[in-house]
Design a protein around this nucleic acid. Structure first.
Lengths: 352, 352
DNA sequence: CAGGATTTGATAGACGTCTATCAAAATTCG
DNA sequence: CGAATTTTGATAGACGTCTATCAAATCCTG
């Protein structure tokens, strides 16, 4: 009934060669005649042989060593990413995968480059990095690749560089998605959108805005963009000012961080007047609460859980010099009040 | 620098006991003094020992045998689920996991029960089943459990039964989510919703409707429910009739299957009149095309890819008598035209 | 067909865990 | 205290793959 899966010895026997020869074939070592190789491959096919990875890893004492470089600071999203990596690290220990999660000062390309140079010196099987799109970063990536260390960019890409893969959302797509929802929310009527970003010079924020613009069309009005530097006090002050000065605003689209300030502002709004629609990015404790309490309408999330899983998957495959699966970008996910995921245990921890 | 992860021998040495004793402790075998056990646990803690699963599985020649029971028939969603399981099966072979994907006639509780009874006889490590919520199914599940075979329900649950876990969405949540989007689409105004289901007696469809009702509130009107039996010709005919007779309809919410008929109807609509908003479930080739062409507005998807991954994860953990992680329900995912995932290779295949 | 190169076979040890056995030591109990 | 019981130690073989070595067989080439 349940028969034992074929081993390489079975393959060898079936192919009429010795174990040594079969082994030479499957591990691509030299010194095998073409005929023997053909026989072995035929036997593999016939028996449906698949290598037992458990045994292979065991014999090789394979140990994957990956480094994850995240920006430090108080940004709630990256705190969540960090927590997810920490959790993954604990789980992956039993698979002989060790993740070293490091952080460098946010927006400090100098520090990031230095850190990456240091990583190039240490013996690693792969690096994932939240990169800034910057020539120095690109050459730091090149340096890692020169040492044969695979590199995956995370959340923010460096398109021209030699990174092996990018794990994250397409920000234009995210912006377009928000554009569609803004149109839906206006039910065919026009409106006036207040865009809030960290800085217009940040490529991801700019891409989100332009994606949104694409979809809402020319008949919508767009108020002057607020640049909140991703700092919540500044966001709170500037958006408050914009709302006060421009009562025609029907929608706020916050494409950057610092949304704690936006939430605080919304909490302080008089309850009798209708508030504008609010769309923002990243499901974190304060944005979640705001959505639950009906102070905002939609959160666009890049599903950091999925991103973390993919980073590990990619790094492992790259370390084995295998082909990547699932290289399509992460899909921006739409959360309304009603389809919020249950709060996970680890999220509770980080809130406490 | 990279030091070898500790083995059980290291633990034994550190605890001052023999390998045999350490082994007795970690494998919960009898005949160990309390003191020795304490020492071993302390050593495990101190060294950060984690069992090498590769080695363990190897030594035990562990082979996981799971059966997946899906409804047969032409339903596009289940065809997709089936394709995903087939793909997973190929991938999992190298992890010594064998999935046998079987199908039984849809809606035939008799056949399903018989199949499950047969599975109870064969030597299996777990079963996943798209169950009908039905007393006979519940007792078939009980029979499997009696043979110590874990059971996971998939897509459709049997709440009162002894199933170990349910992998799927909460249909009330899905309906609420649609309700929220319907409200958004009406931009504060009221409307008239035409609900389309397979049958009102189908619990999942009914739950979706009631979730939707909860959120849209009393000021919305709801037209008489169309029961399309999940058959696309019937859906096409009945919805066409309803739209012709009731021009006040602003929104169609199709909570069931047979949406190919709905799409065909929408394609035939005169292009000059504004069509109602359309919300439906499950991202499959025809619904995707309709969304891309702007004939419908939103697809609520239960992410079968994630469900398949979770089923495998759960079955493996259950087979090892370990604790389940991630028992929270799957989150219904909102797709608009702009955030559709890229078409996967396997999806292309199945379309061809 | 001799000499050299290439291909093949046989085999041994390692990886870390599991299972099992047997004898030695420590503990309990009458 | 001696006998019965429980706890420990030592160790061996298996799982399937990888690496390595060495000798034997086969293949070219002149």
């Amino acid at each position: 009934m349940t028969r034992r899966p074929p081993t390489l010895s079975d393959v060898a026997r079936c192919a009429g060669v010795s174990y040594a020869t079969a082994d030479r074939v499957v591990n691509g070592r030299a010194g095998v005649s073409e005929k023997a190789a053909r026989n072995v491959h035929a036997a593999i096919e016939a028996l449906g042989y698949v290598r037992n990875v458990a045994a292979a890893n065991l014999s090789q004492q394979r140990l994957y060593r990956f480094a994850i470089v995240l920006p430090s600071g108080s940004n709630a999203f990256f705190r969540r990413v960090q927590a997810l990596f920490a959790e993954a690290a604990a789980r992956l220990l039993s698979d002989r995968i060790s993740l070293s999660v490091e952080s460098v000062e946010a927006f400090d390309a100098e520090a990031l480059t230095a850190r990456m140079a240091a990583l190039a010196e240490s013996r690693l099987d792969g690096v994932a990095v939240v990169a800034s799109d910057d020539a120095r970063t690109a050459s730091a990536i090149a340096a890692l690749r020169a040492r044969d260390i695979p590199v995956v960019t995370l959340v923010s890409d460096v398109p021209g560089s030699q990174r092996n893969a990018y794990v994250g959302i397409d920000n234009v797509v995210a912006g377009r998605t928000v554009g569609r929802l803004i149109r839906m929310a206006h039910g065919g009527r026009n409106g006036r959108v207040l865009p809030v970003v960290g800085a217009l010079s940040a490529r991801d924020h700019a891409e989100r805005l332009s994606g949104m613009r694409e979809v809402i069309g020319d008949t919508f009005e767009i108020a002057p963009v607020v640049e909140g530097r991703d700092r919540f006090e500044l966001v709170e002050a500037l958006v408050g000012q914009a709302l006060a000065e421009d009562p025609a605003i029907t929608t706020i689209y916050s494409a950057g961080a610092g949304n704690a300030g936006l939430v605080r502002l919304l909490e302080a709004l008089p309850p009798d007047v209708a508030r504008p629609y609010v769309f923002l990015h990243e499901l974190v404790p304060h944005s979640r609460r705001a959505l639950e309490e009906g102070r905002i309408d939609v959160i666009i999330d890049q599903r950091p859980e999925e991103e973390v899983a993919r980073v590990v998957e990619h790094l492992t495959l790259l370390a084995d010099r295998r082909e990547l699966v699932r290289t399509d970008p992460i899909v921006p996910t739409i959360f309304v009040r009603e389809n919020l995921p249950q709060v996970q245990a680890d999220a509770l921890e980080q809130a406490g």
